[in-house]
Write a protein that binds this DNA or RNA. Structure first.
Length: 563
RNA sequence: GUGCCCGUAGCUCAAUCGGAUAGAGCACCAGCCUUCUAAGCUGGGGGUUACAGGUUCGAUUCCUGUCGGGCACGCCA
């Protein structure tokens, strides 16, 4: 099925054959980059697909590109998928696909169902995506929400592209920040509040700290995905408070993440890296590698050997390790678990860790490739309410939580808005816009298209499985050919989103698909007298609905049948 | 000061990893419901892609510099 519908690779093969005939010396030159590029032109007048091969050959062949194009077309093997070809512009070869060939996509989609669009790019290889990875010192905020949305959509896209995806969440359950957390909870247990003069500067001031303290004193039991702890109520027991507070806040995060439709396969704790001896092992290996040295009572890693702008302290003069040491140990562990591909989705405010982690991994000399692991960094999110920016202060506890957004805006709109932009761009989250149940809101625009199709099919009342075998020969007007091509494009969109690690492409595709459908809807009637036309159109819109469901599923957004 | 990311219509954002005449939505103006959902559709105005150079058949995309915004520059994470 896919071989018939993948016109891009089909044409690529045809042109490769033509190339072998027209310019065998170039086709057989393995060193030359003779990859045949087939692209979709922006203008319909330029055909369905275009090839720029003739222009690329102009220089090596020392011939005018249009002349080469002529020869390529003459040498191109016959294909019933091709309606006609034209030479245009500087030497583009524009290919027009036969409508009959495009029409096959309808049964292709209906046949494949939820699997339509899935490709074998990943070939079943393992990939681990680490995202969110918030420390359990407070509720998740909008920034974490963006990480959750982008990371989860990326996982969905990679899965659809044929990768075997593991979702992982890593957090720090030891160290200075957790000490602050423990101390803050302890003080709250003693009835001391943040406005008290004795409240530590680094303490956490949010109201949720009081909630943790109350639950601890009440000896509540908390269960998170990876935690199960009962509060002892003993205010003097720092270790018990620490465990309880971590479990409590992890549970709160899990509740939010699940409400957001995000589920992790693996949770990794920093403390486990210490208790399992993995940190010590990594340190020993680094020392053995010869890339470390002692200075000022501290142990340093010469990260400048690997492109860093200055060396970094590994072991502080107080004997503790800096945070990036367990990070290196953690990534060595990922590598040993067989993840030859790892993608870390993080906020851009942590970008400086990339050089350090990669440098540490190179210093280990463990056979890890230089650019490993991959990173997707999302830029900061600013929140707008009533046209004014909502300031974020974690210390003071005043910030927009992910839970606020889900409650106020809804899961679908929140996910869409946070995932529908290029991660490299700063994002303005306008709460009023996301909340509005109006035409301003692209989420509803897409969902509405899906619901409309469902309404038509319900009104028709026939057996939908028969549409799979419908004769779609009647689908040939302007609207229909555009939509057929749009459906054909879907697997390519998944491929682009997967290779560029850009899940926002899915959102834009769906908006375009919905727009094309709405135009079609307004210009046509589906439940017409002519049985053949009716069935053909119903089959088409059923296929459109299927692709919408598939695409929305990648975004983690629901596809309601009624609105 | 150094490093990373960004700069595209009045606003929010795209542009298939160098392609042809840079596209949507919102806002603004003018139209379309006796018909399958008007949360919709049709048409219109709106641009020196921050700026200046360079690379080539061709640049929003790649390189250099300038300006502007964000983030990071700790023996915190």
């Amino acid at each position: 099925m896919s071989a018939v519908l993948n016109f891009k690779s089909h044409l690529s093969e045809l042109f490769a054959q033509a190339l072998r005939e027209v310019a065998p010396e170039i086709a057989n030159d393995g060193a030359a980059q003779t990859e045949i590029l087939i692209e979709r032109p922006k203008l319909a007048a330029h055909g369905d697909y275009a090839c720029n091969l003739a222009m690329q050959l102009a220089r090596p062949l020392r011939k005018p590109p249009r002349e080469i194009a002529q020869a390529l077309i003459a040498a191109l093997p016959v294909s019933d998928a091709i309606e006609k070809m034209e030479i245009a512009g500087a030497g583009f070869i524009n290919v027009f696909i036969a409508t009959a060939a495009k029409q096959r996509v309808v049964s292709g989609v209906l046949q494949a169902g939820a699997g339509y669009g899935h490709i074998h790019l990943g070939a079943g290889r393992k990939v681990q995506v680490e995202f969110v990875s918030a420390n359990p010192t407070g509720p998740l905020h909008v920034g974490h929400g963006r990480g959750a949305a982008v990371g989860d959509c990326l996982c969905n896209v990679l899965h659809a592209a044929g990768w075997n995806v593991t979702r992982e969440f890593y957090y720090n359950d030891a160290g200075a920040q957790i000490d602050n957390l423990m101390r803050s909870v302890q003080l709250r247990c003693l009835g001391i509040t943040p406005d008290d003069p004795s409240w530590p500067e680094a303490g956490y001031r949010g109201d949720y700290i009081a909630d943790v303290a109350r639950a601890y004193l009440a000896k509540e039991t908390v269960e998170a995905d990876d935690q199960h702890v009962q509060g002892s109520g003993d205010v003097a027991d720092a270790e018990a408070i620490r465990h309880f507070a971590v479990a409590y806040l992890r549970r709160e995060q899990d509740i939010d993440l699940r409400a957001f439709g995000v589920n992790f396969d693996v949770f990794s704790l920093e403390s486990a890296l210490y208790s399992d001896g993995k940190v010590e092992e990594a340190v020993d290996k680094l020392i053995a590698s010869g890339h470390t040295y002692e200075q000022d009572d501290a142990l340093w890693l010469r990260t400048t050997d690997f492109g860093d702008d200055k060396d970094r302290v590994m072991r502080k003069s107080d004997g503790g390790y800096t945070y990036f040491v367990p990070d290196v140990a953690y990534h060595l562990d990922k590598w040993r678990r067989g993840f030859t591909r790892v993608i870390n989705e993080q906020g851009a405010d942590h970008h400086s860790t990339i050089t350090r982690v990669r440098a540490g991994l190179q210093a280990l000399d463990a056979g890890i490739p230089q650019g490993w692991p991959d990173y997707v960094l999302h830029q900061m999110v600013t929140v707008l309410r009533n046209g004014e920016e909502v300031k974020i202060s974690k210390r003071a506890g005043s910030y927009v939580t992910l839970r606020d957004l889900i409650d106020e805006v809804g899961c679908d709109a929140t996910r869409y808005f946070l995932a529908a932009r290029h991660p490299d761009s700063q994002l303005v989250f306008d709460i009023d816009l996301a909340k509005s149940q109006s035409n301003d809101n692209p989420v509803y625009y897409i969902q509405y298209a899906h619901a409309r199709i469902h309404a038509v099919l319900t009104q028709w009342g026939g057996d939908r499985s028969t549409l799979l075998h419908a004769d779609v020969g009647a689908l040939n007007n302007e609207y229909e050919t555009v939509l057929l091509q749009k459906l054909i494009d879907f697997p390519q969109v998944i491929e682009n989103a997967a290779t560029e690690l850009s899940p926002h492409l899915i959102a834009f595709y769906l908006k375009d698909l919905a727009a094309d459908f709405h135009s079609y809807y307004n210009a046509s009637r589906f439940l017409v007298e002519d049985e053949a036309v009716k069935c053909a159109r119903l089959a088409l819109i059923a296929a459109i609905a299927q692709v919408m469901r598939n695409g929305l599923a990648l975004l983690g957004v629901s596809a309601p049948e009624q609105m």
